Amino acid sequence: MDVRPAGIHHVTAIASDPQANADFYLNALGMRMVKRTVNFDAPETYHLYYGDRAGNPGTIMTFFPWPDAPPGRIGAGQATTTTFSVPEGSLGWWAEHLAALDVEATRPAERGEEDVLTLRDPDGLVIELAASADHHDTDPWDGGAVPTEHAVRGIRAITLTEQDVEGTVEMLGEQLGFRLAGEEGGRLRFHTNDSGQGVGTIVDVLARPKAQRGLVAAGTVHHVAYRAPDGPVQAAWRQRLEEDGVGVTEIRDRCYFTSVYFREPGGVLLEIATDGPGFDYDEPLLELGRSLRLPPWLEPSREQIAARLPVLEIDQ
């Protein structure tokens, strides 16, 4: 059975204020809130999901917003940058849009031919917008603050920063089936498919031997999830990792997908998530993200859980 991933499924990060987080991703980045739920393992905090109209795999950015979370430290052993695709020719519009919201954005000079804007969210998480002519089989959200012709199409890439890249490179190539596409300035680029085209198909490994180790807290990525099309492929992938001596969790039910977790040699937490059943599993597509949804095993505690959560006002 082919256990090569279909690309990135989602990226999950830590935030502090849930309202500030929602305002930024809905208004500054123009994404749709596709699910308002809780951290299944710690239901005293939200788990907020943003994506395209339906929350298609490869478009999803999620957050655990802990109001009292201390600032994290971005560094080695982390996914340090999440890059979103926007249509080719859109970066001028984005620069003006972000400036009007007092969001500072810069164009880094060290990225060669790639045209990107770099910015930070309210907690300091590093985000890039990359102009891309790639075809994206996604459905950009047209109900928010960003016109469809400029809207985020999905996650283009993630960057892993490592003090020692050898083990990470070996896992990406040998155990996860990624293809090394090139290297420039200590940045090794891997593709999850043969072309590097489409949503979530790029993983950059940045070699920074002298970088300080990162600290996962507000403003940092918690984990990166890769796509398995279904449960049997996920189970086969898990078995292969286990046979290779990788410490991998049991399969966990996340309602909208199932997951297994493991760490790559540099310390980044990775996940394998199934494409389905999807975010319309427990509410209609037109109503995604409008109300608090809980998994069946937490429904009996709904009143207590809701009472502990901060008020969150969403207009979409």
Score class of each variant (00 low, 15 high):
residue 110 E to S: 00
residue 42 A to N: 14
residue 37 T to G: 01
residue 296 P to I: 04
residue 235 A to M: 13
residue 114 E to F: 11
residue 153 R to N: 06
residue 30 G to H: 09
residue 95 A to H: 07
residue 246 V to P: 09
residue 296 P to L: 04
residue 242 E to C: 06
residue 158 I to F: 14
residue 300 P to I: 06
residue 95 A to W: 06
residue 215 L to N: 09
residue 72 G to Y: 01
residue 249 T to W: 08
residue 228 A to F: 03
residue 302 R to A: 05
residue 298 L to A: 09
residue 204 D to P: 10
residue 117 L to R: 07
residue 301 S to E: 15
residue 305 I to S: 12
residue 168 T to H: 13
residue 153 R to E: 04
residue 293 R to Q: 01
residue 170 E to M: 14
residue 220 T to Y: 06
residue 243 E to P: 07
residue 157 A to P: 07
residue 212 Q to C: 03
residue 69 A to V: 00
residue 174 E to L: 15
residue 306 A to F: 03
residue 310 P to Y: 05
residue 207 A to V: 08
residue 198 G to A: 02
residue 4 R to W: 00
residue 44 E to D: 13
residue 196 G to P: 11
residue 220 T to N: 02
residue 218 A to W: 00
residue 307 A to R: 09
residue 236 A to C: 00
residue 169 V to C: 14
residue 38 V to T: 09
residue 186 G to Q: 03
residue 255 C to Q: 15
residue 42 A to D: 15
residue 25 Y to N: 01
residue 47 H to P: 11
residue 181 A to D: 11
residue 18 P to H: 09
residue 132 S to L: 13
residue 27 N to I: 08
residue 162 E to K: 06
residue 238 R to S: 00
residue 143 G to Q: 07
residue 71 P to Y: 05
residue 148 T to K: 11
residue 25 Y to T: 02
residue 298 L to F: 10
residue 144 G to V: 09
residue 118 T to Y: 06
residue 210 K to Y: 03
residue 280 D to F: 02
residue 67 P to L: 04
residue 70 P to G: 07
residue 80 T to F: 04
residue 189 R to Y: 03
residue 57 P to R: 01
residue 97 H to D: 04
residue 134 D to E: 08
residue 300 P to S: 05
residue 149 E to Y: 04
residue 89 G to E: 03
residue 279 F to M: 08
residue 26 L to H: 06
residue 157 A to W: 07
residue 82 T to V: 15
residue 12 T to P: 02
residue 82 T to E: 08
residue 233 V to T: 15
residue 17 D to L: 10
residue 31 M to F: 10
residue 74 I to Q: 07
residue 63 F to S: 04
